[in-house]
């Protein structure tokens, strides 16, 4: 009993001391050390574990209103610019859209024929059916993240049924995947972020590899491809569908250069992403069909 009392008293004293440390301005070194070590501990925990994802998600709910505040005036200015756009401009735009539509229709006709042919061939091979997934268009919030990270913020969230790991596309190729979902906004990790890896395959040679983001150039790199592998500049790489994360067959990037250094085990291969990662304002969210396609 006596021991417990002593321990409680010590604790109370300690508590008082700690409180005094934080009340007075005269211990900046101690405060700095405490805060800095807390920050470092958080950084280590965030870098090596996934445990802080929930904390991040909870914290970002109130903060997402700031993102809306930033985005609204810019959106209004853009809308106003579109509203007062001159008549000639609109007519011109309409004509070019028409021409594009005609072109795309012609291509779709070809695609229909190809698709039916493909289906017949697959039926012959008894392959699993590749069902179409659901898609949803989303807009980017006009929010700049740090130049260190390649992420974008979308104006859709859990309300619209988004989930972590969801693939995101634009009109030209794969953009990335959803990494954080809030009720109203969500964050997408772009494929050129250093933390992103995406399984790809070469359309020409069928070679499989992993494309990871290159932090500071905004491009992609193919990792662990041997120097003798059949890959050339100009090859198109599509998602391979391995890893059950991104669906099969969407364009990822084009090989820009292949460097072979004697003495190194692997070739250095740079990819230019097909998606317009810095310019797209509209993106597509994909719900892959539940029956996974097996190749």
């Amino acid at each position: 009993m006596q021991d417990v009392k002593i321990i409680v008293c010590t604790f109370l004293n300690e508590g008082l001391t700690i409180r005094r440390l934080f009340e007075r301005e005269s211990y900046p070194v101690v405060r700095m050390l405490v805060l800095a070590s807390m920050a470092i501990a958080l950084m280590v925990a965030d870098h090596f574990t996934q445990g802080l994802m929930r904390t991040r998600a909870v914290l970002s709910v109130p903060l997402s209103s700031i993102q809306y505040i930033v985005s609204t005036p810019i959106r209004l200015v853009n809308e106003w610019g579109a509203a007062v756009g001159s008549r000639e401009q609109l007519i011109e735009e309409r004509q070019s859209l028409r021409a594009e539509q005609l072109l795309l229709r012609a291509r779709v006709q070809q695609l229909v024929a190809l698709e039916s042919e493909n289906r017949q061939l697959k039926a012959l091979l008894h392959a699993a059916k590749e069902a179409q997934g659901r898609v949803l268009a989303a807009g980017l919030l006009a929010v700049d993240t740090d130049p260190f990270v390649h992420r974008v913020t979308l104006d859709r969230g859990r309300r619209d049924g988004l989930f972590v790991g969801q693939p995101v596309l634009d009109a030209y190729g794969v953009m990335g995947q959803v990494v954080m979902v809030n009720p109203t906004v969500s964050q997408v990790l772009l494929i050129n972020d250093a933390h992103s890896g995406i399984p790809v395959e070469d359309v020409r040679s069928g070679l499989r590899a992993i494309a990871v983001g290159d932090q500071y150039t905004g491009k992609l790199r193919l990792v662990n491809v041997t120097q003798t592998a059949d890959i050339r500049a100009g090859d198109l790489l599509i998602t391979s569908g391995l890893g059950n994360h991104y669906p099969h067959g969407y364009p990822v990037g084009q090989v820009e250069s292949v460097h072979v250094k004697p003495g190194e085990p692997f070739a250095i291969i740079a990819l230019q992403p097909m998606a317009h990662l810095e310019r797209s304002r509209q993106v597509l969210l994909l719900w892959p069909a539940t029956g996974r396609h097996k190749s």
Partner: peptide, 18 residues
């Protein structure tokens, strides 16, 4: 707050600002 908004490593800006 800045780390959460930017998606940087949690604590990075906190350390630098402190």
């Amino acid at each position: 707050c800045l780390d959460v908004l930017n998606g940087t490593l949690l604590g990075e800006h906190a350390l630098a600002l402190t």
